[in-house]
C-alpha cells in the first residue's frame, strides 16, 4: 500500500516533538476525521532553523509530517512556502489516492505555523493566506455533535 519511503518516515519519523520557544505553531485537521497535525517552527533571520511536529493520524499522516518538517529545515520563509503537498508527496515517492488529503494537511500545517509566526512578528508574508483549516472551528463542531 505505501512506498518504502513512506514506511521509512512512518517507522523512523524525523523531527517528532515540540519546540519550547517556537517562532510559530500551527495545528490543522480535526479528530473527527482522524488526522491532526501540529507543526512548530523556529525561525531566525528569515531562515527556518528548526521544525518539529506532533501528529495524530494514520501512517501517511505521520510520514507526510515527518517529510514536510524535513523539507523546510534550513529554508528561507519564501522557500518554505513552496513546500507544497505535491512536493511532500513527490519526496515520499507518492501516496495511495485515498491518502492524498494527508499531504494537504502537511502543507496546511506548515502554512498555519508560518501564519502564526507572521502574526506574532507583525509582518506580512507574501503569498501566505490565513489558514482556513483552523482547528478551533472544528472543536466547536465536535462539541455540538456530542
Amino acid at each position: 500500500m505505501y512506498s518504502e519511503k513512506v514506511m521509512d518516515h512512518f517507522t523512523n519519523p524525523r523531527n517528532v516533538g515540540e519546540i519550547e520557544d517556537a517562532s510559530g505553531v500551527g495545528t490543522v485537521g480535526n479528530a473527527k476525521c482522524g488526522d491532526i497535525m501540529k507543526v512548530y517552527l523556529k525561525i531566525e533571520d528569515g531562515i527556518v532553523k528548526d521544525a518539529k511536529f506532533k501528529t495524530f493520524g494514520c501512517g501517511a499522516a505521520v510520514a507526510t509530517s515527518s517529510m514536510a518538517t524535513e523539507l523546510v529545515k534550513g529554508k528561507t520563509i519564501q522557500e518554505a512556502l513552496e513546500v507544497t503537498n505535491k512536493a511532500v508527496m513527490e519526496a515520499l515517492d507518492g501516496l495511495p489516492p485515498i491518502k492524498v488529503h494527508c499531504s494537504c494537511l502537511a502543507e496546511e500545517a506548515l502554512h498555519a505555523a508560518l501564519w502564526d509566526y507572521a502574526q506574532k512578528e507583525g509582518i506580512v508574508i507574501e503569498g501566505l493566506e490565513e489558514p482556513v483549516n483552523d482547528i478551533s472551528e472544528h472543536e466547536e463542531i465536535l462539541e455540538e455533535d456530542y
Partner: peptide
C-alpha cells in the same frame, strides 16, 4: 501517544 498532539 508520544507523537500525538492530542496526548500532549
Amino acid at each position: 501517544r508520544d507523537m500525538s498532539p492530542l496526548y500532549e
